[in-house]
């Protein structure tokens, strides 16, 4: 199990390198891609601007704490765009056109290759810079200690958030094995992702419960800032650690079920 994990980690590192080199071939595309990301970043920062301008406290959080949330959301967007976005967009096409057959013949996990093979590297740079800046400022202005415990806690829930993100957005893709064309769900996925732009405690309790327990999208960006702010209850901390693992097992199980119904579609 551990060896398999390390093997896939090495392959993923190679995929990052290969994708980065491939993308460098078309440098104008990189510049234009950066433009797109800066545009979306601007929309995300609009919320930060409004919060700064009005000085609003949301659910007891002062604006500087809210920057921590928005910064974490922007940093998580790095993983979303780099790891998932283009794989999500291409997923149903590889099933419709039979490209998936080729993936099945590779000596690595088909799930790994089909859901993670495209890595966007250069386009996410503005998000990295702005995200780190906002998290750094929010961290400092909120008076949170910058020690091993807090940094470790933040990173732990961030890693678990990335795992949750992978599962939450991979599970709906499995519908492609049944419905084939799932392009309509893409806009739904992007909209769901933007739900994390502000702390989940801004929403009414039923939405918070649904988004934390049943469709745990709020675990992705909320738990790492909440953990370092000491705002997570013990129950939430345990749930935040276990839910991603359950979800991952569920995703792998769902994948095995879905793949058993796969019929080669292309030539």
């Amino acid at each position: 199990m551990w060896q398999q994990f390390l093997k896939h980690l090495k392959i993923y590192a190679l995929l990052i390198k290969l994708n980065a080199m491939r993308q460098l071939e078309y440098r104008v595309n990189i510049v234009l891609g950066l433009l797109v990301e800066i545009g979306y970043l601007g929309v995300k920062l609009l919320y930060a601007y409004i919060i700064h301008d009005t000085g609003v406290h949301i659910s007891g959080f002062a604006p500087q704490s809210l920057y921590l949330f928005i910064g974490t959301f922007i940093l998580m967007t790095v993983f979303f765009v780099a790891m998932l976005q283009f794989n999500i967009m291409a997923f149903d096409r590889q099933i419709i056109e039979g490209e998936f057959d080729l993936i099945l013949t590779k000596p690595v996990s088909a799930q790994f290759l089909a859901t993670l093979k495209y890595v966007e590297t250069w386009m996410v740079i503005p998000n990295v810079i702005v995200g780190l800046g906002l998290v750094g400022y929010g961290w400092y202005a909120s008076g949170i200690a910058f020690d091993l415990l807090h940094v470790g806690l933040y990173l732990l829930y961030a890693v678990l958030g990335v795992l949750t993100m992978y599962c939450v957005f991979t599970l709906p893709l499995l519908l492609a094995f049944k419905l084939h064309n799932i392009s309509a769900f893409h806009s739904l996925i992007w909209a769901l992702w933007d739900f994390n732009n502000l702390p989940h405690r801004i929403f009414p309790s039923p939405i918070q419960i649904i988004g934390t327990v049943f469709f745990p999208i709020f675990l992705i960006t909320n738990f790492s800032p909440l953990a370092i702010m000491g705002q997570l209850s013990l129950g939430e901390m345990i749930w935040g650690a276990l839910a991603p693992l359950f979800l991952f097992l569920l995703t792998c199980w769902g994948w095995r079920r879905a793949i058993s119904t796969y019929e080669s579609g292309g030539g």
């Binding site: 933007d194 739900f195 732009n197 502000l198 801004i202 929403f203």
Partner: peptide
């Protein structure tokens, strides 16, 4: 979804 987000904000 963005409408709900903005509404709450």
């Amino acid at each position: 979804f963005p409408i709900i987000l903005q509404w709450m904000l």
